[in-house]
């Protein structure tokens, strides 16, 4: 039994299928890169997987139970979700922002328990934010904010982490750091599903790949077998060279077929 699955999922918007008949299973410990051209349906599929969007047809399942059956808070305790370019709208101190990840576990009254405080401390430390603990989140740099948001997602010890382009706007070092963190997380048994634009990073760090083409799943499988020049041509409509494996993998786009 898979931890997370979508079965025949179709999402319509204005009569057009954004995601069409998507079926896939995801196991614990996998780090899945969701790739595809702009508008291929990546964000929509991730929203369905996170249980935030109910598909028009089909369903998403967690532990073989339909997402729709889960209580919002129960679901929030098991999966974390990071949207594209997450922002903090008030100048909250970083430790408060990270603590918001525990919202679904808080008792009706009262503040964080000592155990929760320890989890916040650990998440802050793991994401390299110790020196920013009390800094207002609105004054963080892009990379720092991305780390703070990741800490916010990790603080609840989720079984599933779904992240929509967690590397958007990050410089190379912070992008590498983030991928490293997500891989470590996956290796500890968490299912990580992330939309990734940088295919070389995806090839080096992710264990699986799910490629979307015009709302349909074009390919889904282990990285080494699935990521091929043929697939790149198919979903991005450009010529690509896929070389090497593991940490030496590289994906280079060479030319568009017309040009």
């Amino acid at each position: 039994m898979s931890l997370l699955a979508v079965d025949g999922v179709t999402v319509l918007r204005g009569g057009r299928a954004i995601v069409e008949d998507a079926s896939a299973n995801f196991e614990r410990g996998a780090f899945v890169a969701v790739i595809g051209a702009n508008g291929a349906g990546k964000s929509t599929l991730l929203s369905v997987l996170a249980g935030l969007l109910r598909p028009d047809q089909g369903e998403a399942r967690l532990d073989d139970r339909p997402m729709a059956d889960f209580d919002r808070r129960a679901l929030a305790r098991r999966r974390a979700y990071l949207p594209q370019n997450p922002r903090c709208e008030w100048p909250l101190p970083v430790e408060r922002l990270v603590g918001l990840g525990l919202t679904a576990s808080l008792p009706a009254f009262g503040d964080f328990s000592p155990a929760m405080r320890a989890r916040i401390d650990r998440a802050i430390h793991d994401c390299d934010l110790d020196s920013h603990r009390l800094q207002p989140a609105t004054t963080l740099s892009g990379g720092e904010l991305a780390r703070a948001m990741l800490a916010r997602a990790l603080v609840s010890d989720p079984e599933v982490l779904i992240a929509d382009e967690p590397m958007a706007g990050l410089d190379p070092r912070h992008a590498l750091d983030t991928m490293q963190r997500l891989r470590t997380l996956a290796r500890s048994g968490v299912l990580v599903i992330a939309a990734v634009h940088d295919l070389t990073l995806a090839a080096r760090y992710c264990s699986h790949i799910l490629a979307l083409r015009q709302g349909r799943i074009a390919a889904h499988g282990p990285m080494a077998q699935t990521l091929t020049s043929g697939l790149m041509r198919d979903i991005f409509e450009v010529e690509a060279m896929v070389q090497g494996q593991g940490d030496a993998a590289r994906v280079d786009f060479t030319a568009s077929p017309q040009g």
């Binding site: 979700y81 949207p83 922002l97 918001l100 679904a104």
Partner: peptide, 16 residues
């Protein structure tokens, strides 16, 4: 409080 993170994140944290 959860809404400080925007509507999508608040929803993902279990807020209706």
């Amino acid at each position: 409080d959860a809404l400080s993170l925007g509507e999508t994140q608040a929803e993902s944290l279990g807020i209706d």
